[in-house]
Write a protein that binds this DNA or RNA. Sequence first.
DNA 1: TTGTATGCGTTATCAA
DNA 2: TTGATAACGCATACAA
Lengths: 335, 335
Amino acid sequence: MAATIIEVAKLAGVSPATVSRAFGKPDLLSERTRGAVLAAAERLGYTPNRAAKGLVTGKTGNIGILLPDIVNPFYPPVVKGATDRAAAADLSVFLATTELDPRRELTVAREMAKQVDGLVLCATELRDDEVAELAAQCAVVLVNGEKPQLPSVVVDTGPGMLEAVEHLAELGHSRFDYLSGPATSWSNERRMSFLRRQADRLGLRVEVRGPFSPSYDAGTVAADEVLASGASAVIAFDDQMALGVLSRLHELGIDVPGQVSVIGCDDVLPVGMARPALTTVKAPCARLGRAAVEVLLGGATEVRQQSYQGNLVIRDSTGPAVRRRPRGHAAPRPA
Amino acid sequence: MAATIIEVAKLAGVSPATVSRAFGKPDLLSERTRGAVLAAAERLGYTPNRAAKGLVTGKTGNIGILLPDIVNPFYPPVVKGATDRAAAADLSVFLATTELDPRRELTVAREMAKQVDGLVLCATELRDDEVAELAAQCAVVLVNGEKPQLPSVVVDTGPGMLEAVEHLAELGHSRFDYLSGPATSWSNERRMSFLRRQADRLGLRVEVRGPFSPSYDAGTVAADEVLASGASAVIAFDDQMALGVLSRLHELGIDVPGQVSVIGCDDVLPVGMARPALTTVKAPCARLGRAAVEVLLGGATEVRQQSYQGNLVIRDSTGPAVRRRPRGHAAPRPA
DNA sequence: TTGTATGCGTTATCAA
DNA sequence: TTGATAACGCATACAA
C-alpha cells in the first residue's frame, strides 16, 4: 500500500540508495537530484519506514515511558513533558502502565526495551538487577527513583517539606501525622525521612500512618486514624489522599483548619477548589518528563541525578493549632 | 547485543525456521523440539524482534492513540481503557498529543500510521479527506468524532443533557446559558444541539456563550459573561470550565446555587470536593478507550458507531431558581 | 515434522 | 556525486 524507496527511485530515475540519502544525508546529494527525489517522494506520499530503518541502524527512533497509573493525576503532566520533548526530537513514544503490579512491570519493560532506544521508568518497583538487565538493552532513566549506575530525575521534596513543617511550627502545631504512600515508593521514603529530620530539628513530633494507596478513598480511611491519634495537623503523601481526608473530616463535622490542618503534595489537581482550598507542596511534574527525555537524548552518561525543587503553596486548609484530644478517649491528653 | 533467531537455532541444534515456528506456530512442532528451542531461547534471553517481524508480516503489533492534550483530565481514563485493552491483546501503544494544533495533528498522525496496525483518533480536527488518507494506511477508529465510512466510539450526551435540562426545569429555571467548548469540537456540537432541542421541548431558553477553551481559566472568564446575561443557571462544556465558573462566582460573592446554578460535564475530576460540590453529567471515559481498541481488534468493519451513555450526577451546585437581573442593568428584567 | 531459500524496506560499504 | 550489493531479524512458500 505505502510507497517504498524503490518506487520513488524508479519515479525519480535514480537508485534506491540515492533516495535513502535524500532523506538521511541530504548534503551528500547534488541539489538537482535531491530536488527530483523529494518531488517524487512527495507525489507518492512516501516517508521512510522506521521499522526497516531501525533494523539496519539499530536505532528505533522510539522511546518508552512506563508508569504505575496514568489516572494518577501526578503523571499526565510528566507524560506531557516527555512527549513534548520527544516530539521535538522526532521520537515516537510508547506508553505503558504497570497497574501497580511489579511482575507485570518487568514483562512490559522487557517488551518495551526491545523496541526503543530509551526507557523512562517512573516510580519503578523493579529490583536493581532487573533494571540493570534493561539498561543493558537500552538507555534507561529513572523518574522519582534511584538505582546504582543509572541516571535519574527526581522531585526534590526537601525544601517543600521543610517549608511545610516550618509552616506548621509557626502555626503552633507541636505534632502532626504523615500519611504514608505505597511502602515501595522511593518518593514516599524520601519524603518521610525529610519530614522526620525537619520535625526533629524544629522540635515537632511526627507519627507515620499507613502505608496507604495514593487515592482519594485511602484518604477517607486515613482521616479516621488521624482523628483517633489526636494530631492537630496532617501531611498526606499526595493531593488525592489529602482530598479524601478533607472529605471525610467534612463529613464528620470536623472543621478544617479550625480543628485539624491538612497539607497535600503535588498541587496537580485543581485543589484550590477543595473545601477548604488545599495547602500543598507543589511538584514540577512537567519538568520531570522533559528532563528525563533530555537525559535519554544526551546519552545518559553525564550527570548522575537531576532534581527539581517543589515549594509550599499555602491556601486555606492550614491554620493555628488547637489542643485536641484523641477520639474515643474520655480524658484530655496531657501536652 | 540481543540474541537473534539464528543464535537460538544454533544452540538448540535446529534451523532458524524452527525457532520462528516455536514462537509463532508452536503446534507445527513436535513437543520435543519445541521444548529444546524454548529452553535455548530462555538461556539466551531471546524474544522475537517485533520490528523485524512486522517488516515481513505487515503487522506491527502496535496501535497508536492520538489526542489533543493528556493534561485535560478527560483523557487519562480514556488512555487507561485503551492501554489496558491493548495490553490484554499483546499490543504496544504509541501515544501522541496534538497540542490542539491541526497541522501538527496531521503530521503526527501520518507518522504514526506507518508504525501501527490501528489508530485511535480522539476529538480529531482533521478534515474528512485527511482522515480518509490515514484510513487507507491502517485501521482507524474515532473517539468522540464522526467521519464518513469510519467506525467511531462516542459518549452519548443525549440522555445526560436531557436529565440536566429537566433538572433545571424542575428547579424552576426558565433559562440557562451553555458555555461552549472549542468551535471545532464534535462533542460540543452534539451537546449544544441536544441542549437546544431539550430546552425547546421543555420550554426553557438557552443562550450559547463562547467558544471557550476547555480550561479552568476560560471558566473564570465565562462566569462574568453569565452574570452579565442574567441567566439563573449555566451548563459548561466540561468540569474544568465549570470549576472555573465556580471559582469566579465565589470570588465575586455570588452564591451557588442560591443565585446561580452550575452544571459541569464529565465527572472526571474529584469535583465532589468543589465548593460547592459540582453537579455534573458523567461520561464513561474508560469504556471509550477500551471500546475503541476493541473496534480496532475486530477489524473495524461491523458496527458503524458505538455510543456510551452518560448520566446526571446531582450534587450541591444546582438549586431552585431565583429571579436575577443582569449585572450592570439598573432595571429589573421582565420575565 | 523440519530445513532451505527468499524477501520485507532500509542503510552502509564499497566501487565507480 | 551516485550506484550496486550485502546485511538487519524474521516469517513463509516450498521442498524434503
